[in-house]
């Protein structure tokens, strides 16, 4: 069981009778980098708060490294960067990092923490004088200072500009590659696609998909085949194998298909085509499809 970092078993949580999490089962292995993907209000932050032990589930069980979330936290195995966590005035970035180091049993060297979070130049800056993006970096520094086995990041790149964002993900990658477990919540689909080993899609408090980003796309309707309309009749196209939806855009027709190979083969043997394009459906579309499926 020690290979399991996080385990959620039938976890639910309501807020004043309104369900935020409606029964999540999830097992995350040590060393995985997981994206928790979902729209605002899907239950991502609530799930993270329960993994941190900040919230107790109404039903179900959460364990972190086989312990209660509280015990894992007290043992210094968990670091986090939370959306609604903030800092106080009258302290500098360096003092904040030193505080975090003192609270964890086996902290990283201050110099490394500042460098990783891109704060070396800002070490003497007061926390209340930081910009939004710099504040996020300070949160990241606070989260990783103790070299925790598990890093939980809730919407980490909110308020960051493009350059900070890239630097942040590079640092996160290095941290994950060193064998740490990282779970981040995001509604930036590209981030989940690009940086996670595995994507867990949450909508309306439930897991609606779970797997590698490529699989998630497949599950949600795969590819789009587009070609010139020419003499094709849309109803014939809709009858092609694999096709789920037909959309006319100008003189082109877009076919959403579960099986692009079969669609294209049948087309080729039949009426033929001009200017054919096959594109992978983005995670954006996948995500919409999955969310719609749950709401229906």
């Amino acid at each position: 069981m020690t290979d399991i970092a996080i385990h959620l078993d039938g976890v639910t949580r309501n807020f004043g009778g309104v369900p935020a999490v409606r029964g999540i089962d999830l097992t995350i292995a040590r060393g995985e980098t997981i994206a928790l993907l979902g729209p605002n209000g899907a239950g991502k932050s609530t799930t993270i708060a329960m993994i941190l032990g900040l919230l107790a589930p109404d039903a179900g069980r959460v364990t972190v490294y086989g312990q209660t979330p509280d015990a894992a936290m007290r043992a210094g195995r968990v670091g986090s960067m939370l959306q609604d966590a903030g800092f106080v005035a009258n302290a500098t970035v360096r003092e904040l990092v030193e505080l975090a180091r003192a609270l964890y049993p086996k902290p990283l060297p201050t110099k490394d923490i500042l460098a990783t979070a891109g704060l070396t130049e800002l070490a003497g800056r007061r926390l209340d004088k930081l910009s939004g993006g710099e504040g996020q970096r300070a949160r990241f520094a606070f989260a990783l200072a103790g070299d925790p086995d598990l890093l939980l990041l809730d919407e980490p790149t909110a308020a960051m500009d493009v350059a900070s964002r890239q630097a942040f993900w590079a640092a996160m990658r290095r941290y994950a590659d060193a064998g740490h477990t990282v779970l981040f919540a995001t509604h930036y689909l590209a981030e989940a696609d690009e940086y996670a080993d595995r994507v867990v899609v949450i909508a309306a408090g439930r897991v609606v998909a779970d797997g590698p980003a490529a699989d998630i796309k497949k599950v949600a309707g795969g590819r789009t085949v587009s070609l010139r309309l020419d003499g094709h009749s849309p109803s014939d196209l809709a009858a092609l194998p694999g096709v789920r939806a037909v959309e006319l855009v100008g003189d082109r027709v877009h076919l959403r298909t579960d099986d692009a190979d079969a669609t294209v083969l049948t087309l080729a043997h039949g009426t033929g085509f001009r200017d054919l394009e096959v594109v992978s459906a983005g995670l954006d579309e996948a995500f919409l499809t999955l969310t719609a499926a749950t709401e229906a």
Binding site: L82, A85, G86, F87
Partner: peptide, 11 residues
């Protein structure tokens, strides 16, 4: 400001 929450997610 969330400082309390920040501290609660440490050991």
């Amino acid at each position: 400001t969330g400082w309390l929450r920040q501290l609660r997610s440490t050991p």
